[in-house]
Simulated assay, not measured.
Amino acid sequence: MALHASPIATMSGGELRAYKKFNADESSTMPGRLGVKETLQSIYAHLVGQGGEQAKIFQFCTPTSYFGILYVDSVRMDVSNQSLLADAAFIPCHASADMAPLVVLLQARRDKIICIKMKEDEIIFWKHILPGFSERCRQWQHKPTCEYKVAGCIPISTDPDKRYMCTCGYNVFPTNYLKDLKQSKDLLKHAVRVAVPVIFASPINTDNPASLPSPSPPAKPPAKPPVKPQAQAPVDKPEPRLVDLSAKEGKCWECSAKRHENGGVLDRCGGCKMARYCSDGCQKKDWKKGHRQLCPQLKED
């Protein structure tokens, strides 16, 4: 389960390269969308006890306080997406929230709480996606006085001291939800049920380098005297990562030939064992065009 949520499984090739660069440069700030996937990996790793004590309670921290507490009841199969999701109660924290009952609960279970520290960019991402996670498992109706309707937007606000989720779903949970947690009745009065999934990269992401985040702005090149333009060799553009494998069956993945150039059967890719090629030249061309990203994914499957 922890490997299922790891950056190798959830990030595109470009995202993973950027993620490694940000981790190597401690002075840089990781973009929120990459931070969310890193946080999800940490949550699922703790749920199975990978590398330490197993835990089901997570405190989402800002640099100065915390903006939410997640209590996982169970991990369920997300059959429609062939993935997993954490079925949990989430307490949105903000300046106007009554935190007194939660303080007592936190003090009683301090050794079982995992604090996940986030930068502001990631916090804003979470405040946008948590309302969607609540809608995924909603078994209640929004009230006429719903805060989303009054504010005219979702989330209500991303300001640190303001509410960002509506209260319509508070305290609406199945019978015996979080039954192993003491004071769960007091807790659920402040919580809404959420389905927290593993988030994967889009299958149509072409990993355009211009669209990927950078740890630091690129340095401006020094001024050079003008030179006579020269013809440049064409650059192969990467193919989309969404590939129709059935259309490639029995054919060279580069030129669609059905036989090897020497007259024999097509060669097989030594990595994924699925791709076929009529020559070494076609295999090298397809590798540069995008098979280098697709090959590990087919191999893992």
Rank of each mutant, 00 (worst) to 15 (best):
S202Y: 08
A95G: 05
I204R: 08
Q82F: 06
S28D: 06
L16Q: 11
A233N: 14
D244Y: 02
I113R: 00
L187W: 12
Y148E: 11
L3Y: 06
T64P: 00
S256V: 03
S83P: 03
D111P: 10
F60L: 12
C278Q: 11
I204P: 00
K273S: 15
F22P: 05
K112R: 14
D301Q: 15
Q41L: 07
A97M: 14
A100T: 15
P209D: 05
L70S: 02
P213N: 13
W140Q: 08
P174Y: 00
P225C: 03
V192M: 14
R163S: 11
R110D: 10
K251L: 15
I43W: 01
G152R: 13
S246T: 08
S96N: 09
D73A: 15
K285D: 07
R76I: 01
D98W: 01
H291F: 09
C282D: 08
S184R: 11
K258Q: 11
G271E: 14
W126V: 07
P217E: 01
V75W: 01
K228F: 07
C146H: 04
P215K: 01
S157D: 09
A5M: 10
D98Q: 12
I204V: 06
Q107H: 14
A210S: 15
P225H: 06
D267M: 15
R276V: 01
K224T: 09
M165A: 15
S202W: 07
L84I: 11
D286V: 00
K189W: 05
K189P: 00
M30P: 10
D267P: 01
L70Q: 10
P174D: 02
D244H: 04
S96W: 03
I114F: 04
T206M: 06
K119I: 08
P144V: 07
S202R: 14
A45D: 02
K228T: 14
T64R: 13
G51T: 01
S6L: 02
F173D: 05
G250P: 01
G290K: 08
L266W: 04
K248C: 03
D159W: 03
G49T: 11
S134P: 00
V194A: 08
S211Y: 05
V235K: 12
D180H: 14
Q59L: 12
K189Q: 15
P101I: 12
C278D: 09
T10P: 09
A201H: 07
C272M: 04
P213Y: 09
K179T: 03
